[in-house]
Design a protein around this nucleic acid. Structure first.
Lengths: 214, 214
DNA sequence: TGTTAATAACTGACTGGTCAGTTATTAATG
DNA sequence: CATTAATAACTGACCAGTCAGTTATTAACA
């Protein structure tokens, strides 16, 4: 009796894109954009390399799609939290920074983006401009709005907004980068959560109207 | 009349290593470690690729030599500043962070290291461990010592040292990374110097004994 | 309802190009 | 003229993107 020929693959037009994106994010996270092999992405997605190109025209397009699907929704959620918030600016800022910090220290896949961008911006300027416009400027705008709200309400001392907005996120981004670079070799370091909490505490203390530092 | 055969190259055993290192740092800075071509390094050093291998056994060895020659001396200088300092811990910390910030925002070549390490640590774990041991832990140890000095003197409130040491340098590293990734595409951003100054101000204000933040 | 023609999802071998590291050879120097 | 710094051609491995061919699925028809 002739063996029934095993089914070698299935048509799954709907499910492919998401599976490919998930696989791509994992491989990009582990190896970086340039060093990631599309063969590996395909293998992880359970598909052949040719199939990748049925759904995404290039490696770069794959990356842009990832930013839109994985990063942007979180930023949009943060914007709506800010819009809905009714308490003080310090409270809102604490909430935004803490949840950003938790998100990025608990979620391996999200933590990959800062590393990917920092690492590859130089060699893929188009990707850098895309990320800057789509994510970074938008995040800075959100933070700046909260800072201004706080100054207007007399909660925060007057400040250089652009510089301070960068300082609000810098340590959180730093921890995300750390997680994807040195954390694997660093057994002594403090838990990322602790660093984030300490940052929020220190940052808000510095922002508050009151004693001068020197 | 026979043309005098032009001299095609010179023997310069002493000068080569430094010239090669300088060229390598430039190329690594511009393209990252993995994407840097040794052909480019050689060309920039005015030498052929084979010559590189007379002086350095591998691309990785080239990088380690760079860390030892370019990064370490600055760290060692900072340690001796700290040892010699006779004023308060806040003063010393301000001085260390400011000069670190100035160094890294004014010196293109030094600013390259954080980017290189963050970008390549995943794919070159041996390099990551080397940098962690040789540079990062040593820098954390220095900052921690200053923080402890400040707490002992009653200048700073008690704290989690490991977390706070990371927060002291995080924004400065962040600016170095920014400089090598997004700065080229970012016309609006504040001057790095301003961000560093603002960080030092904010950080020291947060550290000081006094009002609680909430 | 079983057979077959048409379609489109999917495969994987291949191409063209890149680059770290090697080696046979050449030329500067003492 | 022996030594060795330096060259440049070479090798082998790697990988993004392509495309001719294969197979699952659907639709038309008997």
């Amino acid at each position: 009796m002739p063996k029934p020929p095993p089914r070698r693959w299935r048509r799954r037009k709907e499910a492919r894109p998401d599976e490919i994106l998930a696989a791509a994010l994992d491989v990009f996270r582990d190896r970086g954009f340039a060093a990631a092999r599309l063969d590996d992405v395909a293998a992880r997605a359970g598909v052949s390399k040719g199939t990748l190109y049925l759904y995404f025209p290039s490696k770069e397009a794959l990356f842009k799609a990832l930013v839109r699907e994985s990063v942007l929704p979180n930023l949009i959620r943060a914007e709506s939290v800010a819009r809905a918030h009714r308490g003080g600016a310090a409270d809102l800022l604490r909430e935004l920074l803490t949840s950003f910090g938790m998100l990025i220290t608990n979620n391996d896949r999200l933590a990959a983006f800062p590393k990917l961008m920092m690492a590859e911006a130089g060699n893929f300027p188009e990707l850098a401009r895309f990320y800057l416009r789509t994510v970074i400027y938008r995040a800075f705008r959100l933070i700046t709005a909260v800072l201004k709200r706080g100054v207007a309400a007399g909660e925060f001392a007057p400040m250089n907004y652009a510089a301070t907005a960068r300082l609000a996120v810098a340590p959180i981004i730093f921890m995300a980068l750390w997680r994807n670079s040195f954390a694997a070799h660093d057994r002594r370091g403090p838990a990322p959560r602790v660093v984030v909490e300490r940052h929020v505490e220190l940052f808000l203390a510095g922002l508050a109207i009151g004693r001068r530092s020197s």
